[in-house]
Design a binder for these strands. Sequence first.
DNA 1: TTCTCATCTGATACTGTATCTCATCTAGAA
DNA 2: TTCTAGATGAGATACAGTATCAGATGAGAA
Lengths: 143, 143
Amino acid sequence: MHDPRMADRLRHAGERVTPQRVRVAAALEAARRQVTAQELWESLRGSDPSLGRATVFRTLETLVAAGAARRLEQDGHVYGYIACRPEHHHHLSCVGCGRVEEIDEAFVAPVAERVEAKSGFKIDDARLDFYGRCARCVAAAAS
Amino acid sequence: MHDPRMADRLRHAGERVTPQRVRVAAALEAARRQVTAQELWESLRGSDPSLGRATVFRTLETLVAAGAARRLEQDGHVYGYIACRPEHHHHLSCVGCGRVEEIDEAFVAPVAERVEAKSGFKIDDARLDFYGRCARCVAAAAS
DNA sequence: TTCTCATCTGATACTGTATCTCATCTAGAA
DNA sequence: TTCTAGATGAGATACAGTATCAGATGAGAA
């Protein structure tokens, strides 16, 4: 088994440890990025053509419930899954050249905390997008 | 017309002002909460059975593009829409009851400044959306 | 007012993600 | 090893949203 911790988490949550679940969990961890159930199924089908599509969807939900994965909304009504740690997506988008940079979660967390304190909301997810011009485009416009 | 401002926004964005669009915009404003295109269509069908489903979906996108509404992600791969003033781009959305509160620009401005300083971007516009549960829904879930 | 045409509407078909059903299989306990 | 609650695989189904297209219409021009 690639990562015995994943199996432990499932067992601890009272879930069965099946070869399919182990394979899905291993593939999710190996991805090291946000992936969709569909992507995961397609990549796993290569090595295991008998793996069912529904099984991948179900297993991902099981992993989320067991605390071994996190589900995020992606644009286009797709769920993205990522192993272990939530990864928020905040963007800094240049309207000049189209370049997009990621904004670190550290910038957003303090705002979320203050908003929680003021509003009484319990915040689960955040989306922050900035639009403007990158340094290069600003310089180009000035010249 | 319930709210002439909505028509002005459409006109200003170079969009036609049709009876259907006026009806959809009025219903969205009257809701005063986050609603889905489907919900809006079903409620409007009562008074106007000829109103097409696709028209509601298209109109909501048009309103978003014109700055008269905002699109938010809801759980279950559904887009929620809410009428808003163009100058308010930040929302705090309850996934439990659909209530949406506006977040003051003052929370976001400092983040924008720090991001500008770090990245060299010149930021023109910002959009921040938080998703979670309001105090009432948190209390209801705990009981 | 009437004309004109770009664009909007409504109906329908289609896309793609996710869920449900059910016969079969199996992990894990005894 | 046997037993059984729960998992699997295949296919059907549900549902939000989009694409298409013929016909209708808003809004500016004449």
